[in-house]
Each structure stands twice: as C-alpha cells, then as structure tokens.
Design a protein around this nucleic acid. Structure first.
Ligand SMILES: [Mn+2]
Ligand SMILES: [Mn+2]
Ligand SMILES: [Zn+2]
Ligand SMILES: [Zn+2]
Lengths: 146, 146
DNA sequence: ACTGTAAATGCAATATTATTGCTTTTACAA
DNA sequence: TTGTAAAAGCAATAATATTGCATTTACAGT
C-alpha cells in the first residue's frame, strides 16, 4: 500500500484493484498526464494533454477521476476552499510544498522536513487535527531573476 | 506606510490618497466586508455581504477593487494559480497561514515565526526570490473533533 | 468465451466563477 | 462650479465546475 511505488503506470492496475476500482483508459490517461506534466494541472489541462496525445476524454470524467484518485491518495488537490483549481501527484502523501514563479509561471515542488514539522506543531498547538498541509511560495525563480 | 495601521476603515481614505486612488463607497464596502467577515472571502462573498447590509455593489467592481487592494497591500489573495478564489486581510504583509476545517468549513488564521523562517530558508536554498508565502493546513478543528 | 450487472464514462444542461469592452457616473483638483 | 480622468456599472462572453441521466464498459461468475 501507499504511493511510494508510484509513479509507475504499470502499478496503477494493482492500486485500483486494491480499492475495488476498474482499470480504465480514462484513468490511465489522467495518471499519465499528471506524471508527464510534472506540475500542478487543472482538469482542463489534463484534458488538453490527452487530446494532444491523440486521445480523448470528457472533462466531467476528468473531474470525477481526480476525485477518485484523491480518495485513494494518488493525487493531491491544492486546497483552495471550494475550487478545484489544481492537482498534482504528491511526492509524499499528505503534504506539499510549491514554489511558484509569478514571472514565467513555472511551479517547482519541494519538500522540507523542518517546514513539515513546523506545520504539524502549529496544528497541534491550536488543537487542530491536520490531514494535509500545503505551502505555497510565490516570487521569482532563479532563471527569471537573471 | 505599511498596513500595520489597519484594520481601521477611517485610515482607508489616507491610504488611498497615498497611492493616488479615489475614496469611493464600493471601496469602503469591500474593506468593511473583509474586516467583518474575518475569514478568506470570494468576490461573491463580499458582494453578498454588501447586499445583506442593504448596500449594492457590482461583482465586476469587487474583482477590480480586490486587484487594486492587492496592489497596494491591503488584501492578500490566496495563491491558486489562475483562480481568484479567496482573499483576505493579512495580519502581516507578505505571508499567511490558515487552518481550514473540512468539516465545518471554518478558517482560522495563524502566524508562526518558525514556519515563516523555514519557508524563507527553502526559497533561499532554491535560489528563489519570494514575495509571498502561504501555508494552508487542512483537517478537523477542535470543535468538530469533539 | 459468454453474459449479466454494477461501475464508469459520455453527454447535455445548468450553475458558478472570472474576464473584457464599452458606457455612464463620480471623485476631486483646479 | 466645472472639466476630466478614474472608477463603477452594465452586458456579453469565457472559463470552470456540478448534476442528472443515457450509454458503454470492465470484469466477476458462469
Ligand atoms: Mn509535511
Ligand atoms: Mn511569513
Ligand atoms: Zn520564472
Ligand atoms: Zn470544524
């Protein structure tokens, strides 16, 4: 169990079976898109990627697949209260860090243990049982600054 | 300068003048709404608040006012790549922390210096010039857990 | 292999959120 | 008081998200 054996599209079938879910082409498409895009993507981004590859997928289906994948921990959805916005494949379950360059639009993922610990401590202090935490840092990337 | 003298609606006029902007009723409405709501709100949330108070404001105007307010540092917009989503008044310029209860929907703001420092360190390490950072922690609040 | 069935997808309609261009109104400097 | 640029309103449209229902499909059981 867990997602540490990802991203390997070949194990998708296994993971789906573990959760009693069917192995379908749309689901394979969505996972591939998220793997290849390598950055947070919207449902429509995913649809475009599939189209570009000569495939086809309904946007509603993408929304539903993402919901399913979130439920089984395959993808992470950026928490923007009531908006779908973006999702991506987490390096590690339950937390995420992003650096987003407002100049070129590129997003880079990071993971920092101290930052994780700090977020967990904050939750604990405020009697909050946290399931996920996300850090987003906005600014200018090295390439754009130069 | 700075936003430390907020939230005081009376100083809005001054701040606007400092930036060569006009003191208008819609702008006062938006600031009041954000102050009173005390949590991240969408443009339509703000419009509803104004309506509920017997006032009236066009949604497009709310969007534009929020853009203006962001530019002069009066409000913070949660960074959700390409989506407006939510904005709120920052306790301190340039950073934000939120605990969002997925059960009751309440959002509580926090500020943690260590977490701030950790985010700044991550940016520095990755040669990233950060302007803003946001932490969102999702889970269950004390009230809902009980 | 075939078949029945629940699950998944597609499709259509609708709701919500966000943007754009243009007209009208308004703040405020002169 | 008045002229003018800025701001707000209005209308149209685009983009994003959800819902209900019809159709297709994966796959378990035979
Ligand atoms: Mn973490
Ligand atoms: Mn900070
Ligand atoms: Zn960049
Ligand atoms: Zn709660």
């Amino acid at each position: 169990m867990g997602i540490s054996n990802f991203p390997m599209i070949t194990s998708l079938r296994t993971t789906l079976k573990e959760h009693g879910l069917k192995d379908t082409q749309p689901r394979r498409f969505v996972l591939q898109a998220l793997e290849k895009l390598k950055k947070p993507a919207s449902p429509y981004d995913i649809q475009k990627w599939v189209d570009a590859k000569g495939g086809s997928i309904n946007a509603v289906t993408v929304y539903r697949i993402i919901e399913t994948f979130m439920r089984i921990g395959l993808v992470h959805r950026h928490p923007c209260d009531g908006h779908f916005s973006l999702c991506s494949m987490p390096h590690k379950k339950g937390h995420h860090g992003f650096l987003h360059c407002t100049s070129c639009g590129k997003t880079q993922e990071f993971h920092d243990e101290q930052l994780c610990k700090a977020e967990e401590r904050v939750a604990r202090t405020l009697k909050f049982r946290s399931s996920t935490h996300v850090s987003e840092i906005l600014g200018t990337c090295a390439a754009c600054a130069a």
